[in-house]
Computed example of a mutant assay.
Amino acid sequence: MKDAPGPPLFPEQNSSQKPEKDVPHYHGHRDRLRQKFVETDGAGLADYEMLELLLCGFIPRKDVKPIAKSLLTRFGSLSAVFAASPKTLQSVDGIGETLSIYLKTVHHLHLRATAQELNGREVLSSWQKVQDYVRVRLQHDEIESFRVLFLDRKNCLISDEELGRGTVDHAPVYPREIAKRVLELSSSSIILVHNHPSGDPTPSRADISMTREIIDVLDSLEVQVHDHLVVGRQGVTSMRAAGLI
Rank of each mutant, 00 (worst) to 15 (best):
R181L: 09
V173Y: 04
D169M: 01
H194W: 07
L229C: 03
N155T: 14
I158C: 01
D207N: 15
T202D: 09
V230F: 01
D227C: 13
R212D: 08
I208F: 12
E162K: 12
L157D: 10
L185I: 02
N195D: 12
G199M: 14
G199W: 15
C156D: 11
V231T: 07
L157V: 15
L229V: 12
L185T: 03
L183Y: 10
L157C: 05
N195T: 07
K154I: 09
R205E: 15
R181T: 06
E177G: 05
H194Y: 14
P175G: 02
I215E: 10
I158R: 04
N195I: 01
G199K: 13
T167F: 05
S220F: 14
L185Y: 08
R181P: 05
H170A: 04
V168C: 05
K154G: 14
L221V: 01
R165E: 08
P203G: 05
L229F: 13
A171R: 05
V217N: 09
S187A: 07
I214V: 13
H226D: 03
S209T: 09
E213F: 14
L221M: 13
G164K: 02
D160M: 12
A179M: 01
C156P: 09
D219C: 15
L221T: 00
Y174F: 11
V173K: 01
E162V: 15
V225I: 02
V217C: 03
P197Y: 15
V193T: 02
V173T: 08
I191W: 05
C156H: 09
G166T: 03
G166K: 09
Y174R: 00
M210F: 07
H226I: 06
T211C: 08
D169L: 07
P175A: 03
S189I: 00
D216I: 09
S204M: 03
P201H: 14
H196Q: 06
E161T: 11
R212P: 00
V223K: 01
A171Q: 10
I191G: 04
A171I: 09
H170P: 00
V168W: 12
V231A: 06
D207L: 04
D160G: 08
T167D: 06
V182Y: 10
N155F: 06
T202C: 06
I158M: 15
P172K: 04
E161Y: 11
V182A: 11
D227Q: 10
V173R: 08
S198R: 11
I178F: 01
I190E: 05
Q224R: 12
H194I: 04
I214K: 00
Y174C: 05
P172V: 08
